[in-house]
């Protein structure tokens, strides 16, 4: 695109962000402040993730962008188009083909590889913020590993719901040292953070923080001895591909209360169907509603 540098940001800015990323990788889970730039989209739309992606993307990369697991939602489409126009690199909806995956609120079902980087969009990076409003104090708490009070939140969950009800943005300890918010991914995805072969980068544009989980780093989800960490489970399998072990979205299919559960990861679901897996209602979303309902 004329008049713009490759990947929109100027090279000095990219260097600055790469330095922050290197520091973040060197100190797993530590929030590195960086000089977040104004981006041509509003805060909350992934300005942090975009800057991280812009700083690491090269001509040889293949980019995938997902939002809630899907490649075809507004946020994912606009970010993918942004990079297609400002870099000209190849884009894909296939997890297996991507070298960089920028994501909002999900980690793909397919296990990531060592040659892949996943970039998370982070709204609020500070896990202690709800507990302590002062930045000076939260920094001190991180510095001194004073994380015990973080369990207060989990205690409240169990007291109120009889179990740890926190379902997303579930706090984790990274490398046994830093407490980290994994961004609003469902806790279903927390186990995927643990010892992942892929580099995991987190960017918070409004809050001006970058942090990272380097490959093969231990990521531990906080819990109680008598209320251990558990992921969500569904009684249903995906209506389209029949998967019984993926993160499911509930979809309303008609105006009479008809609903089905389908894989949130649209690429994963498509791959399975292409391989011949079939769910209970394989055509539920591909046909007009009046043909699905009895």
């Amino acid at each position: 695109m004329d008049g713009y540098n490759f990947a929109y940001l100027d090279e000095q800015t990219k260097r600055m962000i790469r330095r922050a990323i290197l520091k973040a990788v060197a100190i797993p889970g530590y929030q590195v402040p960086f000089a977040s730039r104004e981006m041509p989209l509003p805060y909350g739309w992934g300005t942090g993730g975009i800057q991280v992606t812009a700083a690491i993307i090269g001509l040889a990369d293949t980019l995938k962008v997902i939002d809630q697991g899907a490649d075809d939602t507004t946020n994912a489409v606009s970010i993918r188009r942004f990079f297609a126009r400002t870099t000209g690199v190849a884009t894909t909806e296939r997890t297996a083909d991507a070298t960089i995956i920028q994501t909002r609120h999900r980690i793909p079902e397919r296990s990531l590889r060592a040659d892949q980087i996943i970039v998370f969009q982070v709204p609020i990076p500070e896990p202690l913020r709800w507990l302590e409003p002062r930045e000076t104090e939260t920094r001190k708490m991180h510095a001194l590993s004073e994380y015990g009070a973080m369990h207060v939140k989990l205690y409240e969950d169990v007291a109120r719901h009889g179990r740890i009800a926190t379902a997303y943005d579930y706090p984790v300890m990274v490398g046994g040292r830093y407490l980290m918010r994994p961004s609003p991914i469902p806790k279903f995805d927390n186990p995927k953070l643990d010892r992942s072969p892929a580099l995991q980068l987190f960017g918070a544009g409004r809050e001006k923080r970058i942090y990272a989980v380097p490959p093969h780093t231990e990521v531990y989800s906080l819990d109680f001895e008598d209320h251990p960490f558990e992921v969500q489970k569904w009684e249903q399998a995906c209506a389209l591909c029949g998967a019984g072990d993926s993160f499911l979205d509930e979809v309303i299919v008609d105006d009479r209360g008809g609903r089905i559960f389908v894989c949130s990861d649209s690429d994963h679901c498509g791959e399975r169907r292409a391989a011949g897996h079939v769910g209970a209602q394989p055509d539920a979303l591909g046909q007009p509603a009046d043909k699905v309902a009895p």
């Binding site: 004073e146 015990g148 009070a149 369990h151 207060v152 939140k153 205690y155 169990v158 008598d226």
Partner: peptide
């Protein structure tokens, strides 16, 4: 946070992990 969490916080802060 609740009264119970207020009382329990110090215990959790020094490592109590049994709800």
């Amino acid at each position: 946070v609740s009264a119970g969490a207020n009382v329990g916080e110090r215990l959790m802060a020094v490592g109590a992990r049994n709800y």
